[in-house]
Amino acid sequence: MTEKKKIAWVTDSTAYITQELAEHPDVYILPLNIMFEDESFEDGVDLTTDILYNKIRKQKVVPKTSQPSVGKFAELYEKLKTDYDHAVAVHISSKLSGTYESSVNGKNMAEFEAEVVDSKCMSYAITTLINKGMEMAEAGSDYKEIADELRQEASNNENYILLGSLEQFYKGGRMSGTQYLLGSMLQIKPIIRIDTSTGEFELFERVRSEKKAVKRMIELLKNSYEKNIISQVQIMHGNLEHKANELKEKVLAEIPDLDIVIGEISSTIAVHAGEGTLAMIWNNKKR
C-alpha cells in the first residue's frame, strides 16, 4: 500500500493561480460558478476572462456568481482522504462569498481532518498564504500550526483597488446606491479595499482622477514600505496589462529593488470589479 502524503492544499478560483500552483500535484482548486441568463460556466475551467469580457460587452448583462456547492467540496475531501492525512484550505473572504462555509461543511460531511482558513481577502493574497503554508510544511510544521499561522498572517495583507466598473460593483450588491450615484455623477475614482480585520469591502478614499488615484496608491505603498518589510508587491489587473506595466515602472522609480509580480484577476472577481480594474496587493511583515 502506498504511504499517504501529509498535506493537500485546497483553494478556489478567486485565488491567483501561479504556474507553480497550477502544476503542483498537491494543490486542488474548486471553481466558482458564473451564470449568465442562458448559460452557466465554471471559472477558469470553461470560461476565460477574454470570453467573459466579450459576453458582458455584447449582452450588456452582468452575470451572477455562486460558490462551489457543499457537495462538490465533500466529494473533493472524500477523494483526498485516500491519499492525504490532512488538508489546509485557503479561501476568499467569508464576508464576500459562501465558499469558505461550503468548504467547512464539505470537510465535515466527508469527516476529513482539514483546516479551513478565511483569507479575509482574495486574489494574490490567497496565493501568498498558500505559499507561506507550503514553506512551513517543508520546514516540518503540522497542518494545525500552519492554519493558525495563516489566520494570523491574513491580517498583514494590504490591498487597494481601482474598479474598472462602478456599475458592475453596484449591481453585484457591493456598494450602496448613494455611493454609486455620487461616484458616477461626479466622475470620482474611488479607491476601495478589503479591510482585513473584517474581510469586507470598504470605500477607502474618493479621488478625482485615475492619475491621482494611482499616485495615491503608490504613496500608500511607500508609507507601508517605510514601516514594514515588504518582499513583493502584486499588481493585478482586469485586461489592462499596459497600465499594470506602467504602474510597475512608477513603483520601481520610487522603490527600485522591489519584486513586482503582474497578474490578471480571475473571472469571478472580474464579474464584480469589471474590465479595466487595477489593484495593488502586498503583505506587511513588521520590521
Rank of each mutant, 00 (worst) to 15 (best):
Leu163Gln: 03
Thr178Trp: 02
Asp83Ile: 06
Ser94Leu: 12
Ala8Lys: 02
Glu3His: 15
Glu202Gly: 05
Pro31Asn: 06
Lys212Gln: 10
Asp43Lys: 01
Arg287Leu: 07
Ile281Trp: 05
Ile269Ser: 04
Thr48Met: 02
Leu76Thr: 07
Gly173Trp: 02
Ala89Asp: 03
Ala279Tyr: 01
Arg216Leu: 10
Gly44Met: 00
Lys81Gln: 15
Lys58Met: 07
Ser197Gly: 14
Met122Ala: 10
Tyr180Phe: 14
Ile269Leu: 07
Val45Gln: 11
Ile56Gln: 15
Ile34Asn: 09
His86Gly: 03
Lys5Trp: 05
Leu129Met: 05
Glu149Lys: 07
Cys121Gly: 08
Leu203Thr: 06
Asn239Met: 11
Lys243Glu: 09
Leu247Glu: 00
Val117Asp: 01
Lys227Phe: 10
Leu129Ala: 11
Ser66Glu: 03
Gly133Arg: 01
Ala114Asp: 06
Gly164Asn: 02
Ile191Ala: 02
Glu210Arg: 11
Glu167Leu: 09
Met185Ala: 12
Asn283Met: 11
Glu275Met: 05
Thr128Ser: 15
Gln19Thr: 15
Ser102Tyr: 00
Arg287Asn: 03
Tyr100Met: 00
Phe204Arg: 15
Gly164Asp: 04
Ala279Gly: 10
Arg287Gly: 12
Asp257Val: 14
His86Asp: 01
Thr196Pro: 08
Ala22Tyr: 08
Pro68Cys: 02
Ile260Leu: 08
Ile188Met: 04
Lys248Tyr: 12
Asp50Ala: 02
Thr65Tyr: 01
Phe204Glu: 15
Gly238Asp: 00
Ser40Glu: 12
Gly140Tyr: 11
Val27Ile: 06
Tyr28Thr: 06
Lys81Ala: 12
Tyr124Pro: 07
Tyr16Met: 04
Lys4Pro: 10
Leu47Val: 05
Glu42Gly: 13
Tyr77Gly: 02
Ala213Val: 05
Ser102Ile: 00
Glu138Asn: 05
Thr14Met: 05
His237Cys: 11
Glu20Asp: 13
Ala154Ile: 05
Phe73His: 04
